[in-house]
């Protein structure tokens, strides 16, 4: 009987107590390339899933999630294209992007169609982790 209680406790802990989020794989919308730029409204975010605007990066992400037909998944993002370097601390602080994502700097937003393939062929030396480390050292994060 004690094993039954132990197993029940384990199941309850696993279902309710662990900081994991379960995804419905069929509804996932994986993001591969994210572009971020400053606009008059605040921040504009462009990806293969769509584009959204908000007063801040967090709000732009929330807006994109709201209007997307599924579950927008940033953990697969391979490249981040930043059109305004001043956005970096805010983006890095949000923790949406994985540390291995490569970072590019651009003048303006471009058409996301085919961008991932282009950037994959032209790898950047800079990653989110590098930038996070640099900004932390400078005390800007």
């Amino acid at each position: 009987m004690k094993w039954l209680y132990l197993f029940a406790a384990l199941v309850l802990t696993a279902v309710f107590g662990l900081p994991f989020r379960a995804y419905d794989t069929g509804k996932l919308l994986p993001v591969r390339t994210v572009q971020a730029a400053r606009t008059a409204r605040g921040v504009k975010l462009v990806s293969e899933i769509g584009q959204a605007e908000g007063e801040s990066w967090t709000e732009a992400v929330a807006a994109l999630r709201e209007q997307a037909p599924g579950d927008v998944f940033f953990d697969t993002a391979e490249q981040l294209v930043v059109c305004a370097p001043s956005l970096l601390p805010e983006i890095l602080r949000s923790g949406e992007l994985r540390p291995a994502a490569q970072v590019y700097f651009a003048e303006e937003l471009t058409d996301p169609e085919g961008l991932n393939e282009y950037l994959t062929a032209h790898k950047s030396e800079l990653t989110v982790a590098d930038l996070r480390y640099a900004l932390l050292r400078e005390g800007r994060l």
Binding site: A22, Y23, P30, F73, T76
Partner: peptide
């Protein structure tokens, strides 16, 4: 697939 899709290569995911 359910908990850690970020660990899969994007093409596979």
């Amino acid at each position: 697939a359910t908990f850690h899709p970020e660990m899969l290569p994007t093409a596979l995911l």
